[in-house]
Write a protein that binds this DNA or RNA. Structure first.
Lengths: 225, 225
DNA sequence: TGCAAACTTGCACATAGTGTAAGAGTGTGA
DNA sequence: TCACACTCTTACACTATGTGCAAGTTTGCA
């Protein structure tokens, strides 16, 4: 904010020292949390454990995250924020579903999905998706909603709130559905073939939204199986 | 609440004393929680407050609910469990979306929505939907998924996991969308006209899922506005 | 260099959530 | 009607969570 040095958005990194430190601490925390999740299993470690492993105080942990759950869900947040970023890069006159599909394609990438896949496999044995994880998806839904509203603001009589809400929610649900199916089929498999299947699932899911669920027979299943 | 004289319970339930007591306690807790939410606002009361108001011990509270949030979300749970019950009453050969729509129609009823509407208006000022509330919707989604899978198990080559996951998730999302739009338009208005609008929104939302979101123009908005 | 802002940390404290064992209420068969 | 088993409630103790606060440390900047 009080930064005379220009904000190099597209540039490499945030130059100031403070930001680097904060990012490093944040990373140390999530690394520690993920490590403990690996070694001890979900629910078997405390905030203090994470803080000790990350080399910070318990209090500092809470300066970054509001709970262990939130620290782990930051992985999901990172993934989804990236998705939103991709979505916003799409031309504004492109149909929403095509934009969504394109944004998701960009994320069916080993580097992006790897942390998510590990988190998923590590917490899958746990009853169901953690509260904070659900919240992360809902946060993403809200952002998709915003994007959709911005786009449709141009069209004439279309201040159709229901359409936008339903669209945003359904995009998220279908994205989630594709991921769930993929994980349940492939587990932590990140081979090109597996990622190709993920991409196909995402395409199929978006296609379902485009054409509707009333297609008499489910559209001859996915070619990917 | 330890009242030996039971009152008229209409219905085929097994009215053993223990079950009645438990149900009464449970009700006392949610009533107390809702009352405190009304009087003090979200986040401004503790489990102990609820327990005191309900006339039970703090420990007993935790025998029923795992958090204040969960106690309040039981309202949402009740509503959605009811929806699932309605859904299961539909003939198994009916298309899912029609069943969903019919089940939702049955719940656009003052008695069913009133608690939900109040909870919504009381927590709306709060940042966003509570964790446990999201969990309640997700639980409902899982049940819709189960129903859909049971139904489509009969059809020949349709073990299409993606279709079922996407359908269940989208139904929930669109139901939520309709409710959100309704609440934002009408607030806690439960007049017949308002409920008719809710019904129309639910119908429109399900229609979107049936025909797809690619309808060139949003389908001439809702007739209800 | 020195000041101001931002960040970290230790401490105190209220609250959340759980295990345990004793007590009170409830169902059941003799 | 009583006695016994079962279930639910409660008090207590204890660990963990989350936050306010003030003092200490690091970073930015003139």
């Amino acid at each position: 904010m009080t930064d005379p040095i220009a904000h190099t958005d597209a540039g490499p990194a945030a130059p100031t020292r403070r930001e680097l430190n904060k990012a490093a601490t944040r990373q140390a925390i999530t690394d520690a949390a993920l490590g403990l999740l690996r070694s001890k299993g979900p629910g078997n470690f405390t905030v203090e454990d994470i803080a000790d492993t990350a080399g910070i105080s318990r209090r500092t942990f809470f300066n970054y995250f509001s709970s262990t759950d939130a620290a782990l869900a930051s992985i999901v947040h990172g993934f989804l924020d990236n998705a939103i970023k991709q979505l916003r890069l799409r031309p504004v006159d492109e149909p929403m579903l095509e934009s969504a599909q394109a944004a998701l394609m960009a994320l069916a990438d080993p580097r992006a999905v790897a942390p998510l896949a590990e988190l998923f496999t590590l917490t899958q044995q746990s009853p169901l998706m953690s509260h904070t994880e659900l919240e992360a998806w809902d946060h993403c839904r809200a952002q998709v909603f915003t994007v959709a509203r911005e786009r449709l603001a141009g069209t004439p009589g279309a201040q159709d709130e229901l359409y936008i809400h339903a669209l945003a929610g359904s995009i998220i649900s279908c994205g989630k559905a594709a991921m769930e199916v993929w994980f349940s089929r492939r587990g932590p498999d990140l081979t090109p073939a597996s990622l190709a299947e993920l991409r196909q699932l995402l395409i199929d899911a978006m296609a379902l939204l485009a054409t509707g669920f009333n297609t008499p027979a489910p559209p001859s299943a996915t070619r990917s199986s």
